[in-house]
């Protein structure tokens, strides 16, 4: 009997994704051993450095997952992230990080209002919010990279190391623990799964589904803002379009981790594995010095291939 089929359905994608991470690391190591005679991928310092870069993606993906569990999507992540970073660096001082998070909270509340109360499809509403945030930031900065710098605290959180481990990884771990507990141990988390599975049934069971949707978008906004504040600390400044590289990988990481794009199913562990998969895939491809064109093709093929391996979704018959 296939050992994979003994796993619970929601664990199978996680096991496959974890196996694929091992395959990626092995292929990368064989490649570097053959060409350079070294194995940087097995070097703990290199791994930690990769995870430090992956922390920004990981935090975005954590928030994105809560929204996807509802069957919605948050396309406003890129400019929420950039706006939080720009505002945090512009304010500076001790209020820098609270300001950045307040931006995330405000965007999340607004997204939630549009999706939950106005019933506008999240795809199009968050897209509009993203353009508005971009417009606000272009008007604020004049279209140039802002001249303001990150505060020392932001530097510490994103770029320093404690006990040889980058602080950013601790932040990512903290966010992960909060999201995992939120999803598994709180009423809000259970309501998210119930609303994502069937909003009508959840509403009739007495769950305040609209409040749940607002809560999920606020979580996503806060996560994007956290990632923005960290990224600004990492590069010591905020810049135009700093969030653009995070949207699609965040969605891909969540889906590769086994969360169903239509909501209701998925575990946070899967999202973690999905992020690690994407981070390692990227680093192996850059070690192999793949041109951008081949990277894009491999990237797309991996997502399709993995989803095909996870097993086909059921046919809709009712």
């Amino acid at each position: 009997m296939n050992p994979l089929s003994r796993l619970a359905p929601e664990n199978r994608p996680i096991a496959i994704a974890a196996g694929f991470v091992v395959v990626i690391v092995l292929v990368g190591t064989i490649y570097t051993l053959a060409t350079q005679g070294t194995a940087p991928l097995l070097n703990p310092n290199y791994l930690l450095q990769q995870l430090q870069i992956g922390a920004f993606l990981g935090i975005c993906a954590a928030g994105m997952m809560v929204v996807i569990l509802l069957g919605h999507i948050d396309l406003s992540v890129p400019w929420t992230l950039a706006a939080a970073a720009m505002m945090a660096t512009a304010v500076g001082g001790p209020m820098a990080i609270p300001t950045g998070l307040a931006i995330g909270l405000a965007v999340g509340l607004f997204n939630g209002f549009g999706v939950a109360y106005l019933r506008i499809p999240s795809m199009i509403f968050t897209l509009g919010v993203d353009s508005v945030m971009r417009g606000l930031m272009v008007a604020h900065t004049g279209g140039f990279a802002p001249q303001t710098a990150a505060t020392p605290l932001m530097r510490t959180l994103a770029a320093e190391k404690v006990l040889g481990i980058p602080v950013a990884i601790f932040v990512w771990a903290g966010v992960s623990v909060i999201i995992a507990l939120l999803l598994r141990r709180t009423g809000f988390g259970r309501s998210v799964y119930a609303t994502g599975a069937k909003e009508r049934a959840a509403y009739l069971s007495g769950i305040r589904t609209r409040a749940v949707i607002v809560g999920a978008f606020v979580t996503s906004g806060l996560c994007a803002a956290t990632a923005g504040v960290l990224l600004a600390g990492y590069s010591n400044k905020a810049y135009q379009g700093m969030g653009n590289a995070f949207l699609l990988p965040a969605i891909a990481a969540v889906v590769l981790g086994g969360t169903h794009i239509l909501g209701g199913r998925g575990r946070y562990l899967g999202t973690l594995v999905g992020v690690v998969l994407i981070v390692f895939l990227n680093s192996v491809l850059s070690i192999m010095q793949m041109p951008e064109s081949a990277r894009q093709i491999i990237y797309g093929a991996v997502i399709i291939g993995m989803l095909l391996v996870y097993g086909r979704g059921g046919r809709k018959t009712s």
Binding site: V255, E292, I304, L308
Partner: peptide
């Protein structure tokens, strides 16, 4: 045939199309 949700399937094939265009 793959029964993958259109959003995520075309997200991935979009990357492939860009890769081909860059090639």
């Amino acid at each position: 045939l793959g029964r993958i949700q259109p959003i995520i399937a075309t997200l991935a094939t979009g990357a492939i199309a860009i890769g081909l265009a860059l090639t």
